[in-house]
């Protein structure tokens, strides 16, 4: 079986190895808004992995998709290229990286706050086992109860699942039983 060398660097390690120029380019690339959730930028979403200068005017950006099939990654790449071009970097390569995998725990606290403000319940950050969080679906009586998702509009924890998939792959559709507003919930992915 073919094996690959897997290098897993922590964010802190990656950042300490950065040059001041790389840090500045990272700040610029990270300021690009998410095309599907424009309230958040890529730093807050946690998808920007690294920025490397490969030579004069040559930069490589590592971007981690939220979901393998996330179509937004192409727009993100184009937007990053544009902003770096505008700041004098002629040669920009955006490379998608799957390893280490993005998780919803990579969303920054500021990102979570903005999600809630934007009307989307942020993913919960408990340290439970990975995988889907079972929630009751209408009349089925099989799924166990878990900590509730709070309504981003009124804060009530009396909410119900309408559909485990919503407007994008990363969200579920819920409804608040107190204020009756439907809302998106950014599903936990860990």
């Amino acid at each position: 079986m073919v094996t690959t060398d897997r290098t897993t660097r922590t964010t802190a390690e990656a950042q300490s190895a950065q040059t001041p120029l790389e840090a500045e380019l990272r700040r610029l690339a990270g300021s690009v808004p998410d095309p599907e959730l424009p309230a958040l930028n890529l730093t807050e979403l946690g998808v920007l992995r690294a920025v490397h200068t490969l030579g004069p005017g040559r930069v490589e950006v590592e971007l981690s998709p939220t979901y393998t099939g996330c179509p937004a990654i192409e727009t993100m790449a184009a937007d990053i290229e544009q902003i770096l071009h505008e700041h004098g970097v002629p040669d920009v390569t955006v490379r998608p990286v799957l390893d280490p995998a993005w998780t919803t725990d990579d969303i920054t606290p500021e990102g979570r706050r903005k999600l809630r403000e934007f009307g989307i319940a942020p993913p919960r950050t408990t340290h439970e086992p990975t995988g889907p969080v079972p929630v009751t679906l209408g009349p089925t009586r099989h799924a166990p109860q878990l900590p509730p998702v709070a309504c981003p509009h009124c804060g009530s924890t009396e909410t119900e699942l309408l559909s485990r998939f919503s407007s994008t792959a990363c969200k579920a559709l819920r409804r608040c039983l107190s204020c009756r507003e439907p809302f998106d919930h950014f599903k936990e992915l860990r």
Partner: peptide
């Protein structure tokens, strides 16, 4: 790398 990421999607 793909399997690590995709297995969480497949769980859903």
């Amino acid at each position: 790398p793909l399997a690590t990421k995709a297995v969480k999607e497949i769980a859903y």
